[in-house]
Design a protein around this nucleic acid. Structure first.
Lengths: 244, 244
DNA sequence: TATACTTAGTGTTTTTTTTACACTTTTACT
DNA sequence: AGTAAAAGTGTAAAAAAAACACTAAGTATA
């Protein structure tokens, strides 16, 4: 049987964009005691998991995502590690506790990853878990230190999206400039000027306009663009030239 | 006796600025077998340590720094966690291994911190360890995965210094504009135009000019400046307005 | 005490980027 | 044919960036 690293875990803040708002994947946990009928657990958490002894933490985070969404080639980045001395000393997950032979008085270090997808690319795989997309503004109280983890992930995302070409990760491969602008507006909670935004992205040679238009919309269809990672790698002379 | 968290450690990349180059604190390790006279260990590492069960990782990193430098109020920031499955399975530090009761086949997760000081503020505290400042360009090969850790720390520093007011951390409280410019030049390995640089920092209201000049220099003494964290906090309307 | 040495400190012009701002075009739908 | 809805486009003013060279102020020393 595959061994579990008993003192480390990964938590994935899976950000999704639905065309209007920035959302995050939340797990609803309810556990009812079979005898008393009492709800032992009733809370919300981010998605996370243990790490196997023979896998990297990146692999583990990727596994979590893949299990939940079925997606491959998802953007995934480590952003911070949480290791407060008393965090998760006695985790609720009794099964894990039993299987792991861990010392319940030792802390569990969790490495936080965040990840970006278009929500409608995802077919949520439940596997008994009750997961759903929740708009960032409506997340409310989470279990453990997961509100802290979420807010640090969001802080990182807001920074990174300013300096690195990752906004596209929240969209489909082909996207319109309005969709791209909406991503920035949703993440920063600001309004941007359409003409100025377009002037700016026009300078980015790695945004390639296609001879192809949106279909199925009840208005003038917009031109589609793709992000070219090759052009990006070639043309960035500076360390970071992706500022909006 | 204070318990050690056996599967986690912190590594500190202590960056120092000496007025000319960016340096990093390196530990030379040599251990000679008493019977054979053979050198069992002869390598270089970053500074790191275990984490006690009752302290945060930030405390542990701070403790490492404080033990080495005697300094308080040092800039310190977590930048990445390293947890490759086979990292440090059998650490060389036999004493630690014996005391920790750890399973030598489990990985040790290390949380990387980086830290910024003016080298001449530091009185190195040896405590039997052979530590010295080494210019970034002359580091050479380090033990374990420490070259990787160093390069990730440097990557983070190069990013952060562009968007956050941390260059001052490498200088004394009172500094000249030339010194500040030199910090950026050393970290990015570029040359900046003096007049343009000064125009730029003149816009930063949190760089306060003093009615005080350099002393002990054999040329026209420069005006001294301080960084005002209060003014910075008040005046930054944007998330990040510290770009050079 | 004059001179040499060394770094501090300063301004202008050109180019590029940012900001503010409103109307026409294209398509689907009725 | 008309309407609804978002796409797409230009200009002028202000701010920032980039390129570029000399004078000022102090210490050292001959």
């Amino acid at each position: 049987m595959r061994q579990i690293s008993p003192y480390i875990s990964v938590d994935c803040v899976l950000f999704g964009y639905n065309g209007a708002e920035l959302e995050v994947l939340i797990v609803d946990r309810t556990l009812t005691d079979e005898e008393s009928g009492e709800q032992v657990i009733n809370d919300r958490t981010l998605t996370g998991n243990h790490v196997y002894e023979d896998e990297t933490i990146e692999d583990a985070a990727y596994r979590v995502l893949n299990d939940l969404t079925g997606l491959d080639n998802v953007f995934l980045e480590q952003f911070k590690t949480f290791a407060h001395p008393d965090r998760l000393k006695k985790p609720n997950d009794q099964l894990w506790l039993k299987n792991s032979k861990r010392n319940p008085d030792a802390r569990i270090v969790t490495i936080g990853f965040y990840s970006l997808v278009a929500t409608d690319k995802v077919k949520l795989i439940w596997k008994g878990r009750n997961v759903r997309w929740v708009p960032i503004s409506e997340v409310g109280e989470l279990a453990f230190d997961h509100n802290l983890i979420l807010s640090e992930a969001l802080r990182t995302l807001r920074l990174r999206i300013k300096y690195e070409p990752i906004a596209f990760e929240l969209l489909h491969d082909k996207f319109t400039l309005t969709q791209l602008q909406n991503v920035y507006e949703a993440i920063w909670d600001v309004e941007l000027d359409k003409r100025n935004f377009r002037k700016k992205v026009a300078r980015m040679k790695y945004l390639i306009p296609l001879d192809e238009k949106q279909t199925g919309v009840a208005h003038k269809p917009a031109r589609l663009y793709v992000f070219s990672r090759e052009v990006y790698s070639k043309t960035k002379k500076e360390l970071f030239d992706f500022t909006i």
